[in-house]
Design a protein around this nucleic acid. Sequence first.
RNA 1: GGGCUCAUGGUCCAGAUCGGUUAUGACGUCGCCCUUACACGGCGAAAAUCCGGGGUUCAAAUCCCCGUGGGCCCA
Length: 772
Amino acid sequence: MDPKISEKAWNPELEKEILKQWDEEKIYDFTPQDDNFTIDTPPPYPSGRPWHIGAAAHYSQIDMIARTARMAGKNVYFPIGIDRNGLPVELYTEKKHKIRMRETERGEFLNLCREALDDLEAEMILIMKSLGLSGDFTNYYRTDSEEYRTLTQSTFIDLWKKGKVYLANRPNNYDWVSGTTIADAEIIYEDLSTKLVYMKFKIKDTDKEIIIASTRPELLCACKTIIVNPEDERYTQYIGEKIIVPITNAEVELRTHHSAQQEFGSGAVMVCSYGDQNDVALFRELELEEIVAIGLDGRMTKVAGEYTGLKPKQARTKIIEDLETKGFLEKTEDIVHRTPVSERSKAPIEIIPMEEYYLKQKKAVPKMKDLGQEIEFHPPMHKQILMNWLESINIDWPISRRRYYGTEIPIWYCKKCSEPHVPEPGKYYKPWNEKCPISNCTKCDSTEFVGEERTFDTWMDSSVSPLFISKFNRDDEFFKKVYPASIRPQAKDIVRTWLYYTLLRCEQLTGKKPWSEAWVMGYGLDEKGMKMSKSKGNAIDPLPVIEKLGADTFRFWSASEINHGYDFRCNEQKIETTKKFLSKLWNVSRFLSSFPVIESGKPSATDEWILSELDKLVKECKKGYEAYNFFIPAIAIREFTWNVFAAHYIEMVKARAYGIEFSDEERDGAIFTLHKTLSTILKLLAPITPFITEHLWKELYSKDSIHKEKHAEPENIEEQSNVTKEISEFNSKVWNEKKSQNLSLKDSIKIEIPESLEPFKKDLKSMHNLLD
RNA sequence: GGGCUCAUGGUCCAGAUCGGUUAUGACGUCGCCCUUACACGGCGAAAAUCCGGGGUUCAAAUCCCCGUGGGCCCA
């Protein structure tokens, strides 16, 4: 009886062949029906090489969602997209070609960006395909396509007409390196070392002075008041006094405010426009008149007097020197300061009053909270990230950006009266490069217009992904069938951006929530538990790993190592050792391929025992798959296949399956059970390791793809877990005994079989060559 | 300062809303073994006072409180 499968190990090269078959057989094609399972797949952003290994794990798991749903009998719509709008590619292009965006002709710069994106995108698509993603690659979408940008602009025009957009001049987070406003959500905090400068401020008409500590002495020229804590007794006597600001000699008032911390510096704080968000709040609350000390070029403005034109950091150094020579400097201290920086350029942000477009969101918060409650989160704990974010929203969403590579804001202004004009939706507009489609100004009838040059925040594009994939405004029939989507899989770190903005925008545009479930995955960290980044040098390139070990090994690692929702560590060696399980599965299948597949058989006590354990496994997997938690089935399947099925059951029935000293009926019971168990294992594993299961399935059980099968259903067989324990204990006992007597495993030995294992006596005897 | 989350052999992790025998498994280490699926294997061994303290209970890795330390997020 030669095994039908002859190769001794799973060869990952076979994956390429299988991919081709899937392609030819079109087994993942989607035709909308009345009831569909739509996955709002995250379009990854090609921002540079290499792609993140955590992302590869993430997309593997998203595919497991698709396959799980498919095997549950759902009609799965699994679109694939690439997000191509935004700042990172601009920075990448500037670096790659050693150019500056603002010194390059806009059209030319956009072309360079597009080329860079095409390159990076090709690698991502290659990785996603190699991973076996069962998505729609033939129609994959790009967020910078004409069609997508038309949607972004149309939805903006719609919201504009509904009065949800307004222009306002406000202190804004300004990233002067990128030359653009950024949203609060794009700010991160970094601990940077800086100097805390203790300055002497004279109290007017006295010879007394107070000390004020600040990390931003260059903003002295924008200082409007000094605050102290109302409970700080050191300053009680000076409240209401005029204080002379060093260098500028301006007079400001000393007031009390609870936000001044007594422990920080001297307890007295200078309030300037704008050192930080607290300054913004204070200027608003105390109705102070703002002074713009830093311009859009990131340099000091003329109010800075002799420091005009310097960058804030240069001005700081110089002003510290001047304070010292003029006797205003008490001391300086080196401190580490949590500094708000731009997430993308890493430059410290400045707060500068600027005119930007805003999308109303403050009033929508209660509604968003309700929607958030309606959405089922996997795992449930991550709903809290959204709720915390909603709790902290206190300004509307600034949506305009002073960048090039993004969807253009479709507005033209009348040259004469500046009235803004928004065109009709349904077309992609580039106002910086196109004539205004409106012939006369609606206000003054003038015929000359100026196009808006700014673009949208990229989340304006990303936040309509459920509308794009469902062909909103393009195909009503399709839209009705696939919207709202079923599930939004995404990473934990963009809950407050992508997840939240999608909720907001889709509700504003359709009145409905965009999906009923949200599936949130943790971060991929390095082997020490630190965040991976290119600058730290601890990033792992997923492509060579996948090429070397194969997608299934990588996928099984991802499922068995990542407890859903928690952060996970990536370790190449760990991934490699995962391969052992696939080898085990392969060799179990190779052994079974020696026996004919038979449809039925009369199971013996041993067979019934393993079938009860198998049924337990089916139940366990079902629990995991229903929550889209692949950690549960992966661990359970590995444990069962390796440590129960292969280690004990197969060894017990080997002789019976060969028919040595057993009747045909007994033999067939074993063969039937072996195949039933293996075929069930393959089906249980199919969503996690689609390649090897497909190959073995076709070798052993069917011409048709395993991915057209339905999930195995529990048969509710009574549990026999105690038997498992007794069997494995007995087997260990025999093995140990033989070892201590220096016997080979095939040698005979005399050991009493416990009474409880009486039903398994014949199998155990043949397994261990036990003497009566 | 607030929130979420984690802490179990050298390393990673299970023990999930339901407290209950000797705390699961993998990686690594060591020893033995070619046994007609597999040496990418099998068997065996060593290795954990379950972060600390307190409480509830007949019973706590598990529940509660306090603390310590890490990660992430927000301010």
